[in-house]
Design a protein around this nucleic acid. Structure first.
Ligand code: FES
Ligand code: FES
Lengths: 154, 154
DNA sequence: ATATAAAAAGATATTTTTATCCTAAATTAA
DNA sequence: TTAATTTAGGATAAAAATATCTTTTTATAT
């Protein structure tokens, strides 16, 4: 459903949301290791996310990536829009040229119920809200045990 | 989520379920035109489905593809298994290396609810049952207006 | 100023998915 | 038996997704 690139992007942004800010930037190397994602690929991806104003970066020593306050108000939908585009989400699960209640394929109503639910989350909740929930409810964005508060708690 | 190949396969089999039997075989050309699917690609696909005993074929004039009674008792899950494999259905929506209730990603519970629902359909309902439902409830597997009963009603 | 660290940019490589083409084999009707 | 038709099989091509490598630019600390 989501491309690798898009999954990496979402997880990276949630990661940055959890343990970065203007004072605590994180390098590609760290992110790629923490999330177990190919490093050079992620570098390109972050470059693109930066251009799209979804993450912020600075070069040079002590540089790296972080989410500005503005970045944190973006939604997951914004990320998907930039990386994968959202076309395929409106497409029929079985590949019909049109997807809608008026010409439903055999799985249309099952699928569209799901879509509505998950899209609501993706469109309504900000990155900041997702991060809140991750911390409160104990959700995972990596199976590596990193200290959620480590980088931001000194 | 499903590859093009897999979508084509499912729709082709449902199509054959609707308007073929041992006495009424359908050629690749017809199927590809009715479902608006690339013909040579579909030919390969049907070959594979035949080898996997999901469709039946005969060569020569008056030959073509059809579903035997046995074929009609297969499930959509069987098709997915053969074409795409089912690995990706057990994988995490955000690409975590493990997906489960014990290490849920931020969208895990939303997604797994959906998976359970759609998988139940795919695993439990036979092709024959799907075809029943398509006819009863007026579902679509193509946006071309073909006569559902045409081929099988002479 | 200089050395260093980190992202940006551009070029390239690999893999997977999708699609096409050509020849062979089988079946049928005449 | 022959011509016609249709699937089977094998080779190849094109496109997209994924991944890597190298060089350049920018910022920092000393
Ligand atoms: S018509 Fe197939 S999912 Fe909507
Ligand atoms: S852990 Fe992500 S979908 Fe299950």
């Amino acid at each position: 459903m989501l491309s690798n690139a898009c999954q990496y992007a979402i997880r990276s942004i949630l990661y940055l949301g959890m343990c970065s800010d203007e004072k605590h930037k994180v390098g590609v190397k760290t992110i790629s290791e923490e999330l177990e994602v190919p490093q050079p690929f992620l570098a390109k991806l972050l470059q693109q996310l930066n251009k799209s104003h979804l993450v912020t970066s600075t070069k040079g020593p002590y540089g790296g990536f972080y989410l500005s306050d503005e970045n944190k108000e973006k939604t997951v939908w914004d990320i998907i829009l930039v990386i994968d585009g959202t076309d395929k989400f409106s497409q029929c699960f079985l590949g019909l040229s049109k997807c809608g209640d008026d010409n439903p394929c055999p799985v249309h109503f099952t699928v569209s119920a799901f879509k509505n639910k998950i899209f609501k989350d993706f469109k309504d909740k900000t990155v900041a809200q997702f991060v809140e929930e991750i911390k409160e409810k104990g959700r995972y964005i990596s199976l590596k045990k990193f200290d959620v508060l480590g980088a931001a708690s000194d």
